[in-house]
């Protein structure tokens, strides 16, 4: 817990040590990933094999992490910003997942009663 205590800087410089060229390369990467996402949507194999949704999920996750790491500087900035944001992100993610799962079983439950006539 006290790891960062010792180097507490008096000023927050935002620590951007990335060059414009890096930013442009990252933008290219993001564009390529987006293009791939859209492209695989039009490939039938992904639909029939059931790999489309996992592939899209992974690709957008990569985009998401790239933007927060580089454009929002979480990778190079003070780690405490990262903790704050990731806490919110994880909490939100867990609650979204739980809500979706709970509501889904609820709907299925209704359908089940409908089918079984209960």
């Amino acid at each position: 817990m006290t790891d960062h205590a010792m180097h507490a800087p008096a000023e927050d410089h935002g620590q951007e040590h990335l060059s414009d060229a890096t930013y442009i390369k990252i933008a290219l990467l993001l564009v390529v990933i987006t293009a791939v996402e859209v492209a695989i949507y039009y490939v039938d194999w992904f639909h029939t094999s059931g790999t489309l949704v996992p592939a899209l999920a992974v690709l957008s996750l990569v985009k998401f992490i790239t933007v927060i790491s580089y454009y929002m500087h979480l990778k190079v900035d003070d780690p405490r910003y990262r903790y704050i944001f990731v806490c919110g992100l994880i909490l939100a993610g867990l609650i979204v997942a739980a809500l979706a799962a709970l509501m889904r079983t609820h709907k299925i439950d209704y359908a089940l009663r409908f089918i079984t006539g209960a």
């Binding site: 008096a10 927050d12 935002g14 910003y81 944001f85 919110g88 939100a92 609650i95 979204v96 979706a100």
Partner: peptide, 26 residues
């Protein structure tokens, strides 16, 4: 903390906004 107060505020707000969009996305 050595952290800029306003930047800290913005990050807290964004963490909170995750819950806002999280609820909408759910």
């Amino acid at each position: 903390t050595g952290l800029d107060s306003r930047k800290l505020l913005m990050w807290l707000f964004l963490a909170s906004d995750c819950m806002f969009f999280g609820s909408l996305i759910a």
